[in-house]
Computed example of a mutant assay.
Amino acid sequence: MDFSKTQTTFAKFGQFLAYYLNNDYQSIDSVKLEDYLGFKQACTKAFQSNAWFTEKNIDYALAQWAKILTAGNLKKWLDQYDTRIASDQRYNIGVVLAGNIPIVGFHDFICVLASGNNFIGKLSSADKYLLPAIAEILIRIEPLFKTRIKFTEERLSDFDAIIATGSNNSARYFEYYFAKYPHIIRKNRNGVAVLTGAEKRLDLLAEDILRYFGLGCRNVSKLYVPEGYKFDHLLSSTGQFDWLSNHHKYRNNYDYNKSILLVNRIKHFDNGLVLLREESSVSSPISVLHYEYYREIEKLNEVLDSQSEFIQCIISEDSNVNNSLFPGQSQQPDLWDYADGIDTMEFLLTLL
Results as ranks from 00 to 15, higher is better:
residue 2 D to F: 05
residue 3 F to L: 07
residue 9 T to S: 11
residue 10 F to K: 04
residue 13 F to I: 03
residue 14 G to Y: 01
residue 14 G to R: 12
residue 17 L to Q: 13
residue 18 A to C: 01
residue 22 N to H: 03
residue 27 S to A: 09
residue 33 L to H: 09
residue 33 L to E: 00
residue 39 F to S: 07
residue 40 K to L: 13
residue 40 K to C: 02
residue 45 K to W: 09
residue 45 K to L: 14
residue 47 F to E: 15
residue 50 N to F: 01
residue 52 W to E: 01
residue 54 T to V: 09
residue 56 K to L: 06
residue 60 Y to I: 11
residue 61 A to F: 08
residue 61 A to N: 04
residue 64 Q to M: 07
residue 66 A to C: 06
residue 67 K to I: 06
residue 71 A to I: 15
residue 73 N to A: 10
residue 77 W to C: 13
residue 78 L to I: 07
residue 80 Q to T: 14
residue 82 D to T: 13
residue 89 Q to W: 12
residue 96 V to E: 05
residue 98 A to W: 08
residue 99 G to L: 04
residue 103 I to D: 00
residue 111 C to V: 14
residue 119 F to C: 11
residue 121 G to W: 05
residue 123 L to Y: 07
residue 124 S to I: 05
residue 129 Y to D: 07
residue 130 L to M: 11
residue 132 P to L: 13
residue 133 A to M: 05
residue 134 I to W: 04
residue 136 E to V: 12
residue 137 I to V: 13
residue 140 R to L: 06
residue 140 R to Q: 11
residue 140 R to C: 12
residue 141 I to H: 02
residue 142 E to I: 10
residue 142 E to W: 04
residue 142 E to S: 12
residue 147 T to H: 08
residue 147 T to M: 12
residue 155 R to I: 12
residue 158 D to S: 09
residue 163 I to G: 06
residue 164 A to R: 09
residue 165 T to R: 07
residue 166 G to C: 07
residue 167 S to K: 06
residue 168 N to G: 00
residue 172 R to G: 03
residue 173 Y to M: 00
residue 173 Y to C: 01
residue 178 F to Y: 14
residue 189 R to P: 08
residue 193 A to D: 06
residue 193 A to Q: 03
residue 194 V to M: 03
residue 198 A to D: 10
residue 199 E to T: 13
residue 201 R to C: 11
residue 203 D to S: 13
residue 205 L to E: 11
residue 208 D to S: 04
residue 208 D to F: 02
residue 215 L to M: 15
residue 218 R to M: 05
residue 222 K to Y: 03
residue 226 P to S: 00
residue 228 G to D: 04
residue 232 D to A: 15
residue 234 L to P: 00
residue 234 L to R: 00
residue 236 S to Q: 14
residue 237 S to P: 01
residue 239 G to V: 11
residue 242 D to T: 13
residue 243 W to I: 08
residue 243 W to E: 06
residue 245 S to P: 04
residue 248 H to C: 03
residue 252 N to G: 11
residue 254 Y to K: 02
residue 255 D to I: 09
residue 257 N to P: 12
residue 258 K to M: 08
residue 259 S to Y: 12
residue 267 K to C: 09
residue 270 D to H: 08
residue 274 V to M: 06
residue 274 V to R: 01
residue 283 S to N: 15
residue 291 Y to G: 12
residue 296 E to D: 14
residue 300 L to C: 01
residue 303 V to T: 15
residue 313 C to H: 09
residue 316 S to C: 05
residue 321 V to A: 10
residue 331 Q to F: 15
residue 332 Q to Y: 04
residue 333 P to I: 08
residue 336 W to V: 01
residue 339 A to W: 08
residue 340 D to H: 03
residue 342 I to Q: 14
residue 343 D to H: 11
residue 343 D to K: 05
residue 347 F to M: 08
residue 350 T to E: 12
residue 351 L to N: 08
residue 352 L to G: 10
